[in-house]
Amino acid sequence: MDPIVLAAGTALVSAMATDAWQRTAAAITDLWKRARDTEGEVIAPDRIPNELDTLRTNVVRARTDSDAEMEESLTGLWRLRLHALIEQNPSLAEDLRSLVRERLLPEVDDRARVRVETLIQQSAKVSGGTSYMAGRDMRVHSGEETS
Rank of each mutant, 00 (worst) to 15 (best):
M1Y: 05
I4T: 14
I4K: 06
A7R: 08
A7G: 07
A8M: 00
A8Y: 01
G9Q: 06
G9T: 03
T10P: 02
A11C: 07
L12M: 01
V13W: 09
A15R: 12
T18A: 12
D19Y: 04
D19M: 06
R23P: 00
T24V: 15
A26W: 03
A27R: 10
T29F: 12
T29E: 14
T29S: 15
D37V: 02
D37G: 14
E39D: 10
V42Y: 09
P45N: 14
P45V: 09
R47K: 10
N50V: 04
E51C: 00
L52S: 03
D53Q: 14
T54C: 02
L55S: 11
R56H: 13
R56E: 03
N58Y: 03
N58H: 14
V60A: 09
R61Q: 14
R61T: 12
A62L: 07
D65I: 00
S66V: 00
E69T: 11
M70Y: 00
E71C: 07
E71V: 06
L74Y: 09
L74H: 08
L74D: 01
L74K: 07
T75S: 07
W78Q: 01
R79P: 00
R79K: 08
L80G: 11
L80T: 05
R81D: 02
H83P: 00
I86T: 14
I86P: 05
I86Y: 04
Q88W: 02
Q88R: 13
P90C: 11
P90I: 02
L92P: 09
L92R: 08
E94M: 07
L96E: 05
R97S: 15
R97E: 13
L99E: 08
V100F: 15
L104N: 08
L105N: 05
L105V: 11
P106R: 12
D110F: 08
R113K: 14
V114Q: 14
V114G: 01
V114C: 02
R115V: 01
R115K: 13
R115D: 15
E117S: 13
T118E: 11
T118L: 15
L119H: 13
I120M: 12
Q121K: 12
Q122F: 01
S123T: 04
T130P: 00
M133V: 10
A134L: 02
H141R: 04
S142H: 08
G143N: 05
E145A: 07
S147E: 03
